[in-house]
Design a protein around this nucleic acid. Structure first.
Lengths: 260, 260
DNA sequence: TCCCGCAAGTGGTCAGACCACTCTGCCAGC
DNA sequence: GCTGGCAGAGTGGTCTGACCACTTGCGGGA
């Protein structure tokens, strides 16, 4: 209990939090409340360590953590700057978490369905001309049989991402993007097996509904799109399209039933 | 271009990634693919630094980053152990991001609605007796006017969390939990203003539908629950309950397009 | 038998050193 | 006058070795 107060006399009432956490907190405050905008430089590590009375080691660890959270970005020899906020770091964390828990494809689909249908509906209400143009662009790629599978997958992903963006609600993107990330492999399968025509057709129907501002139709088309894909995946996995013998016969992942 | 290859001769073809990142990657692999379960200890910093041929400084920074991502937890004098995966770190990152981008409460609600309705429907299909008992338990707390506001908020949160768990789909929990975290404050408001009776009543209706295994009804009751809460929040914010004059009159956050 | 205290091992912090890189500004060459 | 290259200052990246604070477990004394 005598503590290290004698040597490290900085804080009269030494809290139990370690110094790194202190510095992290201080830097975070500086960024958020200190009015630092993305792109603004942080003081050099040596300056910070002098100002805060801690060793450079501690400062480096603190900055490293902020960097791993995507708040800040260090460039060798150049300095450390505030990073523009994006959802990528969260996506990465999300992905890690999902991978860890070894979730099943069905589980992912079960979450994706209500999300994407809601996105389609909202996009139908809020889409701008710019977004429609971007969606058209992805359709051109997806509809071109000369394009590579990789390009098709990319166009497929982008279609859904742009749709999420078209809602004007950033949370949709944040939540959806990690799920998409995990579905890339399955996309490759469906697009490879059934060709891109099917996806192109589905997307066209969704896009039409979004363009004419019909949220219910957009939502419905999206539901069919996802459920069809899901069936194909099941077939590809060797299983019968769906477990028809179950108590709840109809639509594959019957749950998220929502016609809403 | 002569580089530091002479002194740091470890990697013949030195990649541009820094050593810390290498160690982070290595440790991550060790955790995910090496079959380390939550609670298992990592080697000591000194051991890792010896094994990987880097200084302890680097190892410490790497572990610090993993810790800031919630993958690992260091205890002074005891060691570093793998942390059980939770959504908390993601919630924190989420919250930071939202604070930065100043996102609106409506946006959160817009994501929450389709998720929770899907959860309610799925829970109605997959609930077990054990889950029903747990849900009953939260209802007892929420229905007891002698309990503190804090207890009510907790019971409210738990109701939704258990429901997500009852779906048997872990992804639902993961996606929902950070959103819930961000809604604690708003919950405190609604529960404080309108008392817990309303929430108790709503939950009772949802629970009944889940108990009788009716996904459509459960979904519908959940929709009403969330939309009502949302209206109350709007009122609390001083705005009129909803903009009834909109083109799409009926249900409040219709697409979640909110009446906006 | 039980409890206390000590020793070993671990994470936390420090100091100072060197390397690799970026940036800027000066100066020589055109 | 303008341009190109070079040098120096400043910054992040890594290393070393030391010490402190903490946890844990074991052994010896009451």
């Amino acid at each position: 209990m005598t503590e290290c107060l004698l040597k490290h006399q900085r804080n009269a009432v030494m809290s139990r939090v370690d110094r790194v956490s202190e510095v992290v907190q201080a830097l975070e405050d500086k960024i958020f409340q200190g009015g630092l905008a993305p792109g603004d430089p942080l003081p050099s590590e040596r300056d910070i360590s002098a100002q805060m009375g801690v060793s450079r080691t501690v400062v480096r660890e603190a900055i490293g953590r902020l960097a791993s959270l995507g708040l800040v970005r260090s460039v060798h020899g150049s300095g450390t700057r505030v990073e523009a906020p994006t959802g990528r770091q969260i996506s990465v964390g999300f992905e890690r978490l999902l991978r860890w828990s070894e979730c099943r494809l069905e589980d992912l689909a079960a979450v994706r369905l209500p999300l994407e249908t809601a996105i389609a509906a909202s996009a139908a209400n809020h889409r701008s001309e710019a977004h429609l143009a971007l969606l058209d662009e992805t359709q051109r790629t997806l509809g071109d049989p000369d394009q590579s599978l990789k390009a098709h997958v990319k166009a497929d992903l982008e279609f859904h991402a742009i749709l999420a963006e078209a809602t004007g609600n950033p949370i949709f993107q944040m939540v959806l993007s990690p799920i998409q990330e995990l579905l890339i492999e399955s996309r490759r399968q469906t697009l490879g097996k059934h060709g891109s025509e099917l996806a192109h057709d589905h997307h066209a129907r969704i896009l039409a509904a979004v363009r004419q501002g019909d949220p219910d139709l957009a939502s419905e088309e999206m539901r069919r799109h996802i459920q069809t894909n899901f069936q194909h995946l099941h077939e590809a996995a060797g299983r019968p399209a769906a477990d028809r013998s179950g108590p709840e016969a109809e639509t594959p992942p019957a749950d998220f039933s929502p016609p809403v």
